[in-house]
Design a protein around this nucleic acid. Structure first.
Lengths: 111, 111
DNA sequence: ATCGTCAATCGACGATATTCGATGAACGGG
DNA sequence: CCCGTTCATCGAATATCGTCGATTGACGAT
């Protein structure tokens, strides 16, 4: 019979974990919710000004967030404008996805 | 006007992060999905047998998962039986919650 | 009471992550 | 062409995390 004794394959578990890792830090949560409050894209400098952490730290977190395509970047002259990727927000896995064994969502590749 | 310039308060960001931290590890993802596949509660020994990591490691992860009430424990004689907390699965925050500034869900205190 | 089983805790170790300050590279303006 | 601004990257310090083996404690059976 289809007795599900095996654990979730490690590879899938890692993929799931990498999603949740992206939001598993308070500073990144702040950045994400900040970008969401402002409807328009924000430059790194603006984010630094209100987030209370150093510029290199903000840049680092933005890199992590953009690697999972949670935020999108658009370079404009000398500054980089970051904004939320709406389609990535909606495909973000839920705890129910994990529990029900749904396939791991893949971040949309388009920018 | 209500110009939302302030970042999300650090305390709330930390609460959000602690939720996502709970699922930010591949082994915990495996344990959670394992408990979900089996409908009935599982003992630590059973989980160890199929998860491929040591007993103390499993115990450690189960502790983390039960601290956010994602799993519930029921001690039975010499063994501990763990099971998924369904109501915690459904209240688990989504990325949309973060982005929309919803209040941080609190894990149900009942066991 | 003693032994064996089961699970939680402890201590330690290596691996990752977070943060910072400093440096560097790209760009626009005078 | 030089300078200031803006951001990414580097290197290092620190903190946190995941894992293990060993120990401890609780319980049941003999």
């Amino acid at each position: 019979m289809d007795e599900q004794k095996e654990p979730l394959p490690r590879a899938e578990a890692e993929e799931y974990a990498s999603w949740f890792k992206a939001l598993a830090d308070a500073t990144r949560i702040q950045i994400v919710s900040l970008l969401a409050r402002r409807r328009e894209p924000m430059s790194v400098g603006e984010i630094v000004a209100v987030s209370g952490v150093g510029q290199s730290t903000v840049s680092h977190h933005l890199k992590i967030l953009s690697e999972v395509r949670f935020v999108l970047v658009e370079r404009q002259g000398t500054s980089s404008l970051y904004r939320i990727n709406e389609s990535c927000v909606s495909c973000f896995p839920t705890a129910a996805d994990v529990v029900m064994g749904n396939p791991v969502p893949t971040a949309p590749v388009r920018d």
